[in-house]
Design a protein around this nucleic acid. Structure first.
Lengths: 346, 346
DNA sequence: GGGCCGGATGTGACCGGTAACATAGACCCA
DNA sequence: TGGGTCTATGTTACCGGTCACATCCGGCCC
């Protein structure tokens, strides 16, 4: 009762399978009567054409592959959603490979599987990519349109899409400087993420421009981007730099964790310590105080990546290795106070 | 320079394509010397076998399809991540179709596309499913293992996975009752979501058991689950039931929105109004006050769905139409105060 | 020394579509 | 009335794997 084929339909409609194919693809030159007969047969047999067979013969899969870090990361799931929407708009399906932190050689496996499935384009969104010197990825980039998201790997032939993290970090810090803060600490994400390093660079740039020194004691790196890390980082900072008046946290969760830790110590935000985050997650605006943060347009990142692949696929191999950096604007809310000279907490 | 086939490899290694196939699949009875020669040819030609061709001839795609509401919804992306991980563990790929709110007949299109791709199982996670009486879904459930997530559609042959929303709503409300609250309002999600209705039922159950009346004025339905809706709902409640002392919000975002609105009115949480949420999103614990909420194990839901399909696929058609309801436990934090008789805010 | 066995390998069909080409009428016009 | 063109349809090969079966060859046994 399962799996009628095009030839079954043909038999039932008393035509050749080719005629059925023509009807399916809306081809010209099929008489109305025949078409009707074929359509009826299709309905009666509940015929569903096989995309597998079609792919094999037409050599098109209409599939894009996306390899990313864990989709449950809000941040990347936004990018996936964006890519998915854009891909679909262009008639592609997206298959995703979501890498769990910690597993060993998963990205290679996924890459391999996607090549086997003959995806027509590849989006690689793994910041902590261990494939830098790997031939597999280079191979992939050579045979099909490839976009690297948030990666600093140089891959000839691949396009790059990223957030302007350095500028984002700079803006966040410069804003704190403009509000007269002078002892500004930062809580960073894992420094093996290019984005974390870039934000840190931006932070340092801004301090330097303001003639402030970027003291080691003011930098608290974390092993992940989560709340708990933010909490602990804030405690470390309070120990190493008790006179700080502002913190630039590289993610909103880090910022929220830090705020929680500050509160435990009886410090108010922003009256005693000002905070800037990074991401602009949805709750940032309702938090108390509403979080000033740098907005990351991840959905746009995903969309752009898919669009680049679509363009590349159609206009065969044009400009290789383009680089697209999306702006991450500062969103000013209520977690930063202006220091007007004078005394503050002891 | 692209796309060597198995026959190309065979030619180069001076064997038949069948021997190459045997090597690829680690078959017995290939002499060490031949194997070596084949492997070398594979390497030299950078041969990557075609999963498409393999699928066609073997009639296995090792692919699961998942149709869901927008993946950028944190909640569903968790489920996707869970399903993805479990599927992969079992050697399946997951292709996702993410439906944007508002688009017309997308779920049908996706379903269709997935059938065409010959997925070996289907996870449908669309609460607001408009396919109830649709033949397409019934068809699908008939030909392949199908799991409905968070849906109240009756579909013979399909498995169901859901959260125990009614019990969750009951526990949340009963907890407020136990803390001596007597005027307990609720902010619901869109009532065309089965989960919203079930939570509302749980709320009513708990009130009834406590001998309290479930006044219309205490129920504020929303059009979505977001912050802004929560804000507006709280304002409506303050107008219709100014003496309320507690609110059960059906999502954490609704709860946070409500808290923001209460604060604007000068009301403190939990001193003046107690709040219970639903979801346990990651920021719930760092919010001020830490949010008491009902935890939804969405990742587990996704995993379970994938596991069910895997089981079903192997042990051909066993118990059809099983129903799995996962517990959603109440997580007690700091957003609920105990009312000890006496006077409160005017 | 012939028959049998089993390991190593080859041959050809098949999966279900698409594409290129072939064919058969019908119609048209010189 | 015959050739040319157009439309409707059929025939056959092909995409790149897997599968079932055939074949070849060396060793073993009686």
């Amino acid at each position: 009762m399962k799996g009628a084929t095009i030839r079954d339909v043909a038999r039932r409609a008393r035509v050749s399978h080719q005629t059925v194919s023509r009807v399916m693809n809306g081809h010209e030159s099929v008489s109305a009567e025949t078409r009707e007969r074929v359509l009826r047969a299709i309905r009666e047999l509940e015929y569903v054409p096989s995309a597998v067979a079609r792919s094999l013969s037409s050599n098109r899969t209409h599939t894009l592959g996306m390899v990313t870090t864990d989709v449950s990361d809000h941040f990347f799931s936004e990018a996936v959603a964006g890519a998915e929407a854009e891909a679909r708009k262009r008639g592609y399906f997206l298959i995703i490979g979501s890498i769990e932190e910690g597993s060993e050689d998963d990205e290679r496996t996924y890459l391999r599987l996607m090549l086997e499935r003959r995806v027509e384009g590849l989006i690689v969104a793994i910041p902590r990519l261990r494939l830098a010197d790997d031939d597999l990825l280079a191979d992939a980039a050579e045979r099909l349109p490839t976009v690297l998201v948030a990666s600093d790997i140089e891959l000839p032939g691949a396009d790059h899409v990223d957030i302007d993290n350095r500028r984002g970090g700079h803006e966040a810090t410069a804003y704190l400087v403009a509000q007269k803060h002078r002892i500004i600490a930062t809580i960073t994400g894992p420094l093996d993420w290019p984005s974390a390093r870039a934000r840190l660079d931006g932070y340092r740039d801004a301090l330097r421009e303001a003639g402030l020194t970027a003291d080691r004691a003011l930098v608290a790196p974390c092993v992940d981007w989560g709340l708990e890390s933010g909490r602990r980082a804030a405690e470390r900072l309070l120990a190493s730099a008790p006179k700080l008046t502002a913190i630039f946290a590289q993610s909103d969760l880090l910022a929220l964790g830090a705020i929680a830790a500050l509160r435990v110590r009886g410090l108010r935000v922003p009256e005693d310590v000002s905070i800037v985050g990074f991401d602009d997650i949805s709750v940032a605006s309702v938090f108390d105080p509403p979080l000033t943060t740098v907005r990351q347009p991840m959905r746009e990142v995903g969309e752009l990546a898919a669009r680049l692949i679509g363009d590349r696929a159609s206009s065969a191999r044009k400009a290789k290795g383009s680089r697209h950096i999306l702006r991450a604007p500062l969103v000013i809310r209520g977690s930063v106070a202006r220091l007007d000279g004078g005394a503050r907490r002891s």
